[in-house]
Simulated scan of single mutants.
Amino acid sequence: MEAQLTVTGWVGTDVELRPAADDLTAWATFRLASTPRFHRNGEWQDGNTTWNL
């Protein structure tokens, strides 16, 4: 099974690439920040930035 995910944000740490136990796949860890934008009163405004692990 294969999945594709697209996320827009800011990477806040170095990306650590780690091999899986089966040596056929890998996974990465990093912190990601995202800030929602919304249109209010004719202007674009930024919401609160959220940091994810």
Rank of each mutant, 00 (worst) to 15 (best):
L5H: 13
L5W: 09
L5Y: 10
L5E: 05
L5Q: 07
T6I: 09
V7L: 15
V7E: 04
T8Y: 07
T8W: 08
G9V: 02
G9K: 06
W10A: 01
W10M: 06
V11C: 10
G12M: 14
G12T: 04
G12A: 11
G12V: 01
T13K: 08
D14K: 10
D14I: 03
D14R: 07
D14M: 01
D14H: 00
V15I: 15
E16D: 09
L17Y: 11
L17A: 07
L17W: 13
L17K: 13
R18C: 00
P19Y: 06
A20W: 01
A20G: 09
A21V: 11
D22W: 09
D22Q: 10
L24N: 11
L24G: 05
T25L: 09
T25Q: 08
A26M: 09
A26E: 12
W27I: 00
W27F: 15
W27Y: 14
A28S: 12
F30Y: 15
F30M: 12
R31T: 06
R31Y: 06
R31H: 12
L32W: 05
L32Y: 07
A33N: 06
A33S: 14
S34G: 09
S34W: 08
S34A: 05
T35L: 03
P36F: 02
P36D: 06
R37L: 06
F38D: 00
H39F: 15
H39D: 02
R40K: 14
N41V: 02
G42A: 08
G42I: 04
E43F: 09
E43C: 03
W44C: 06
D46K: 14
D46Y: 07
D46C: 09
D46M: 08
G47F: 07
G47P: 03
N48H: 08
T49W: 05
T49G: 01
T50K: 13
T50M: 07
N52E: 12
N52H: 13
L53A: 13
